[in-house]
Design a protein around this nucleic acid. Structure first.
Lengths: 191, 191
DNA sequence: ACCTGAACACCGTTCAAGT
DNA sequence: ACCTGAACACCGTTCAAGT
C-alpha cells in the first residue's frame, strides 16, 4: 500500500516539498496537479487561491516544528545536546532533501506574498525563539551555559545563524557547514 | 537632470532593486519595462534571457560589494569597527529600502534558477568569506580579537548570521536586530 | 462532493518587421 | 542600433458544466 493519503493531503505534501525546494513563486499548481494526477483547476476546489494553500502548509509546518522540538527536549537532558540535535534537523533537511526551512524560504519572498502569510511566518519565528530561549535558560541554570550571555538575545542570533548557514550551505553544497556553525556558536557560550 | 542613465543601466538598476525586494521569480520584464517606458520585448535586445540579466546584475553586485568592503577597511582602523560598519550596511539596506542581500535572495531561490547563476552567487560568498577572514585575522594579530577562535570558521558563521538575521528582521520589521546580532557575535570573540 | 474545460490577463521567449 | 507587435506555451483564477 503505497499511498493512503487523500487528495487534500497529497496537495499539502507536494506543496510543502515544492516550497522548501523552490519557493512560493517557484512552483505552480500544474506541478502539483501533474504529480498527483488531477487537473490544476481541481486544486482550487480545496484551496481557492495559492495563498490559501501556502497558509495551510505553513500552519501545519509551524505546529509540526513545535512537536519536533518537544521530542528533542524529551530525548536529551543537556541543553547543548538539544541544541545540537536541533541544528542536525536543519542539516538533514538540506542533506537528504536539498530543502530549506519552509518559513525561511517564505520569509525571503516576503515582499511578493500576501500579508496573511507574513503572520504565520512571524508566529513560526516567535515559537522557535521562545523554545530556544527556554532551552538556553535551562542550560544556564544547570551551569552548562555561561550565565554571562542573554538567553533571549542568543536564541535569536543562534536561530538566525542556522537559517543563514542553511541557505549558504546549499549553494556551497556543504550541508555539514550547518553543524560547524552550530558547534562554533555553542562553543562560545559553554562554560 | 534627473536621469543620465542609458537604457541598459536603467534595466540593470531596476532589476537589482526588484530582485533584492521580490526575488528572481518575483519580478517580471514588464515591471522593468513599464518603469523605464519601453516594451518588455525590448529588454531581450539587451539580455536575451532573464538569466542573462540576473547574471549581469549579480556580477556587478559582487564587484560593488568588494569595493564597499575596501572602503570600510580604509576608513576604520580597528577590526571590530570594520565588522560593525559591515553589519550596518546590511541594516541600512533593510531599513531604508526594505531589501535583502541580492545574493542571499538568489541563494534561497537556488533550485529554481540556472546553474550559471549559482556560480556567481558562490563567488560572492567566497569573496566575502575571504575578506571577513582577513579582517578577523588582523584583529587577532592586533590583540583585539581572541586568538582562541578560528578566523576562517568565525568569518563564515558571522556572515551566515547576518544573512539569516536580515531575512528574519524583515519579517519582524526590526532592522536593528541585525545590529544586535552583530554586536552579540563580536562580544563573544573580543578579548 | 469532487472534478473538468474553457476563458481571461499575465508570464518569458522568439522573431519578423519596423525606424 | 534599437524597438515593436504578434505569436507561443506557460502561469493563477474564475466559472459554468459535468459526475
Amino acid at each position: 500500500m503505497a499511498n493512503m493519503l487523500n487528495t487534500r493531503e497529497q496537495i499539502l505534501d507536494n506543496a510543502k516539498a515544492l516550497i522548501q525546494s523552490r519557493g512560493y513563486n517557484g512552483f505552480s499548481f500544474r506541478d502539483i496537479a501533474t504529480k498527483i494526477g488531477i487537473k490544476s483547476s481541481s486544486i482550487h476546489y480545496y484551496y481557492p487561491e495559492k495563498t490559501d494553500l501556502v497558509v495551510a502548509v505553513a500552519t501545519q509546518y509551524r505546529s509540526d516544528f513545535i512537536s519536533l522540538t518537544e521530542e528533542l527536549i524529551a530525548k536529551n537532558k543537556k541543553a547543548i545536546k538539544i541544541l545540537t540535535a536541533y541544528a542536525e534537523v536543519f542539516e538533514s533537511t538540506l542533506k537528504i532533501d536539498n530543502k530549506l526551512c519552509l518559513c525561511g524560504m517564505l520569509a525571503s519572498e516576503m515582499n511578493s506574498i500576501e500579508p496573511e502569510l507574513h503572520t504565520v511566518i512571524g508566529k513560526f519565528f516567535s515559537d522557535q525563539h521562545k523554545i530556544l530561549t527556554s532551552i538556553i535558560s535551562k542550560g544556564q541554570s544547570q551551569n552548562e551555559i555561561s550565565a554571562d550571555i542573554n538567553a533571549k538575545d542568543f536564541a535569536k542570533t543562534y536561530f538566525a545563524t542556522l537559517e543563514g548557514a542553511m541557505m549558504i550551505a546549499r549553494v556551497n553544497k556543504r550541508p555539514s557547514d550547518i553543524k560547524l556553525a552550530s558547534k562554533q556558536m555553542l562553543a562560545l557560550i559553554c562554560r
